[in-house]
Structures are given as structure tokens and as C-alpha cells.
């Protein structure tokens, strides 16, 4: 299996915090006549459903962000409040494959977040295809090592959340 490691993983690697969340998700290959690479957003919300950190936004570049609204939950929670792309987070759409992202309890500005319940969201929308949102809640910081798996339905394959204290 081939891994594509997104930029946040590299950034997160320099963080001094030990606890760590890894999310691995599969963007499945589609047997369709007209395939467009999906838009993908991965972000963390606090227990008030406020987004505290976007780990990835993959979208077609150079198109005035015109279709970002189709990531409707991410758009509503994060995108519409932004003045531009998020450095190291916004990127081009990707091919089907398995992707991994990492988070270490920080907000978008790199500040540590308080302990509490958080939710990871993975939203995928494909032109001429479906839209899918998977959400999984977890306690941060993790008290013990914990792995959770979700099975996506259409635009997502398996989503694995791995928490390490």
C-alpha cells in the first residue's frame, strides 16, 4: 500500500507534544466514465462544533475557490471565514489512494488546545459523484492508545483514527 504523507504531518513532527492523533483514510478508485478527483477536507472541531484546526483541504487550484462551497460542512465551519488558502494545509486534489494526516492537539495557529472532547471530520465531494462526511469523536489528550475504524460508504473507504498518549 502506498502512502502519501500530507504537509501537516511534516509540520506536526517538529511539535514538542508527545500525544498524537493519526488519521488514515482511503480515497477509493471509481469505475466511472467521467472521473474528477474529489475535493477533500479534514478538520477538528471542539465540543461546541467550532472548527479548531483544518488538517487538509484539497481542491482544484486556480479556480477562484468557486467550488469550495461544495465541501458544505467545511465551508460553513471554516472556509467562508478565511481570507485565502491556509498555508501548508490547502493543496491540489489527489488521486485515489491512502492518505495519512497527523494532529497533536494544536489549533491553526499552533497553540495547544485545552483538554476535552473533539471531533474529527473527513468530508469528500466529487464532481458528478457523491458527497460523504464521516465524523468521529474522541477525548483529548488520549488517556491510552486507542484505534477506531469507520467504513466509508461511497467517496471514502476506510477511515482509521489512531490515538497515542
Amino acid at each position: 500500500m502506498k502512502y502519501f504523507v500530507a504537509a501537516p504531518l511534516l509540520l506536526a513532527a517538529v511539535s514538542s507534544q508527545a500525544a498524537d492523533l493519526r488519521v488514515e483514510f482511503v480515497v477509493p478508485a471509481m469505475k466511472v466514465a467521467e472521473y474528477h478527483r474529489p475535493y477533500v477536507a479534514v478538520w477538528i472541531e471542539n465540543d461546541q462544533r467550532q472548527a479548531v484546526n483544518t488538517l487538509a483541504v484539497w481542491h482544484e487550484q486556480g479556480k477562484k475557490d468557486k467550488w469550495l462551497k461544495d465541501l458544505s460542512q467545511w465551508w460553513r465551519r471554516v472556509g467562508r471565514d478565511l481570507d485565502g488558502p491556509i498555508d501548508g494545509v490547502s493543496g491540489a486534489t489527489r488521486l485515489p489512494g491512502t492518505y495519512q494526516l497527523q494532529w497533536q492537539g494544536i489549533d491553526q495557529q499552533g497553540q495547544a488546545l485545552p483538554a476535552g472532547q473533539y471531533t474529527l471530520s473527513v468530508e469528500v465531494v466529487r464532481e458528478v459523484g457523491d458527497r460523504e462526511l464521516q465524523r468521529v469523536s474522541f477525548d483529548w489528550p488520549p488517556a491510552e492508545a486507542h484505534t477506531e475504524q469507520l467504513q466509508g460508504k461511497t467517496e471514502l473507504g476506510q477511515v482509521t483514527l489512531q490515538l497515542t498518549p
Binding site: K64, D65, K66, L68, W75
Partner: peptide, 9 residues
Amino acid sequence: PIVSGHESE
């Protein structure tokens, strides 16, 4: 009803 993008539309 919902429009994204930083330019006029």
C-alpha cells in the same frame, strides 16, 4: 444560494 470564491460572482 451559497457562493464561494473571493471574486465577484
